[in-house]
Design a binder for these strands. Structure first.
Lengths: 114, 114
DNA sequence: CTGATATGCAACCATCGGTTGCACTTCAAC
DNA sequence: GTTGAAGTGCAACCGATGGTTGCATATCAG
């Protein structure tokens, strides 16, 4: 089974955009993030708590600021799980497709034989 | 950008299990699905509405039953988007990693030069 | 010291996944 | 044909969550 906490953490679109911003800008605070997002600072702060809880970000207090940075190893793990789920479904779809083709083939053979 | 409706549709764990069951058992009804899931029929019915709205399943009324089946093409599309998001992040992580290594190398060179 | 900036905390609201309860249709069996 | 069981639909309710506003608190700069 997959780590449902990690999945649900990256499942939120706003949190995905936050991780994106933190990655491309090399970290940030609740305030700087909220300036680049269509939500308030408080909403961002709540998301940061969630991301911190599952270890996707780390926080470094600096004066009156709280600077957040992505834990790349953990994010890599989350991405890997994403890929795993994708592959599992892909495999299942392939299997279904093969079965469907086989049924089709069998039916063809039956018709020819009759 | 990605289709956020599709993503959020497969984002729910219960809906993922439902798609899974529908795939492996070749379709089903709200009642049969709820028998294999830890939720009530009504909850399943609501999820089926969501899945139907984004085209991940199709419904066929048959007497008093409403039989649901997965739209494999649409599911394949959803899986592809999943993979795309994963790859985008992967690429970003790789880029960050390369930059970090470069900084590391430059610092080494600077130390040796001084 | 004072004002501006960054954060934290609390109350509140809408949406969503889930539940229970009840009414409605359809099939089957007597 | 009536009656009962099975499948569905609808509505009210509940808890968690993503979002908001408002206010209090801490820190930096002039």
């Amino acid at each position: 089974m997959i780590d449902d906490d990690l999945w649900s953490a990256v499942g939120d679109p706003t949190r995905r955009r936050m991780l994106d911003l933190l990655l491309t800008e090399g970290g940030g605070t609740a305030t700087t993030l909220s300036e680049r997002l269509p939500v308030t600072r408080q909403a961002v702060a709540k998301h940061l708590v969630v991301l911190d809880r599952v270890g996707l970000v780390h926080v470094t207090p600096a004066g009156r600021e709280r600077r957040y940075e992505v834990d790349e190893a953990q994010l890599a793990r989350a991405v890997a799980q994403l890929a795993a789920v994708g592959e599992a479904w892909d495999a299942r779809l392939q299997r279904i497709k093969r079965i469907a083709e086989r049924i089709q083939r069998d039916r063809q053979a039956g018709v020819e034989q009759s």
